[in-house]
Amino acid sequence: MRLRGRVLILCFVLALHLGLARAVAAADWPQNYVVHEHSESPDDRYGVLVLSKEAAIEQDQTDGNTTYLANLQTRQVLGEVRETDYFEGQNHRDLQVVWSPDSSVCVLEYEGRYGFDSVFALELKGEGFRQIDLGEHIQKSLGRLFDGYVNAYFRFAPDHKLKVRALSYTNPKQLPDEPSNYARFQGTFDLKSEKWTDSNARKIKSEDQDALTTAYQEDFARHMIVAADSTKVPENFTGSMFSSEEEKADALDKIMNDVYAAVRSFLPPGRFAKVKQEQIAWLKTRDATQSAEEKSKLTENRIRALQDLLW
């Protein structure tokens, strides 16, 4: 009886301890914070937490809101992302999150009205992460040419490297008495050594700026949908709605032309000559396709192939 009593007491204490542990874990999740849309890692384990729009407005807490990186499976906050200020759906602001395929590193780009305010890489380390400022170097490199607004784009490469492309510009409202300048940055950041192994910036033409802006949009397909009417569109969808697959195919063709123009401007002549021949052959295949839906799929794949050439 004594042994049984001790076992019951031990089980009770253990259950109480586990209950307290769960309570502590739940308390670690910041109140009124939500998982930022499209911020989940490829393995669905991690995500970025931001203050909900409802809480920010109801509590008049529209400034000074930090963000967090969290383990979504255990509901544990891994840490605060320093030097940030954002809440979900904030006017003229946005937060873009790009993850490495193995879910070990993510890039956070905090966007202002015309360009980014800050860019950080977060590399997971045990139950925490290391925060690396990428935006400062990008802005300094482009700032040597002129002081402008900057938008950045990212791709993870093998051997723990991050490729970066950025576009800078002035006169966002295109005022007639203001000068308009454009520039392109390209670089590679080694996450192991925390150093830029490649980095350069140069001025470009306005038409190149437009073409590259389209070419660097790798999630273009996610923002295109075919629907008979607006009631068929998902609630949180942002992008362009097309009434038919033919309309979508035409829109994709315009995107492809912009990307092709960027490739023509920035690839060496010898290399572009080969791409041009490939494009001619591809167009014959695409035009011989009868189905508009199949044409769209072919064009999407061709756009991505052309985009790869700019990285």
Rank of each mutant, 00 (worst) to 15 (best):
F220P: 14
V50Q: 02
K140M: 00
D43S: 08
W311D: 10
K297F: 14
P176T: 01
F242W: 15
T84V: 01
D219S: 15
A25E: 07
A56E: 02
E235N: 09
L72P: 09
D210Q: 14
G135A: 06
R75D: 02
D177I: 03
K173T: 13
K53R: 04
E247D: 14
Q217S: 15
Y33N: 03
D63Y: 00
N257T: 14
H36F: 01
D258Y: 07
T299Y: 09
Q186T: 08
N71P: 04
C106V: 02
D210P: 04
T238N: 14
D308P: 05
V105K: 00
S104R: 06
S118W: 00
T299N: 12
G135Q: 05
E111P: 09
R22C: 14
Q279R: 13
M224Y: 02
I204G: 03
K205Y: 12
R202G: 15
D229T: 10
G270M: 07
Y153G: 05
L134Y: 03
S100K: 03
I280A: 15
E246A: 09
S206R: 15
K161D: 05
D44F: 15
T62Y: 02
R302M: 07
L10H: 12
T188K: 10
L95T: 01
P268E: 08
R75E: 05
L18N: 12
R75P: 04
R22H: 14
V107M: 04
A262Q: 07
N301M: 09
V81W: 03
L162M: 06
M224G: 00
Q31P: 10
A23M: 11
L252Y: 04
S104Y: 06
T188Q: 09
Q61Y: 03
D133A: 06
Y169W: 09
A157L: 12
R184W: 13
S104P: 06
K284E: 15
Q174S: 09
D287F: 08
E80T: 05
G19D: 14
E278V: 13
R165H: 13
T238G: 12
H92K: 08
L145H: 10
P269H: 11
Q186D: 08
L306N: 13
A183C: 12
V48T: 00
Q131T: 06
A288D: 08
E178S: 11
V164N: 06
W196H: 12
A21Y: 14
L78Y: 07
R155Q: 05
L142E: 06
L306A: 05
Q217Y: 11
D287L: 06
E235G: 14
F237D: 02
L310T: 03
R264L: 03
G239K: 15
N71L: 05
V275I: 10
E54L: 12
R4F: 14
E246K: 05
S243E: 12
R155C: 10
F146A: 04
D44C: 11
Q131I: 05
D190T: 04
H137M: 07
H17R: 11
A183R: 13
K254R: 05
Q31W: 11
S244G: 10
L3K: 15
R75I: 13
G126A: 08
D253N: 07
K254C: 13
G64A: 00
D190F: 15
F12D: 08
H36Y: 03
I303R: 08
S291W: 11
F12Q: 10
D94A: 00
R2P: 11
A305W: 15
D147R: 09
Y114M: 03
L108R: 00
A261E: 14
Q174A: 12
A221Y: 08
L145M: 08
Q290Y: 13
F129D: 02
T285S: 14
T238P: 09
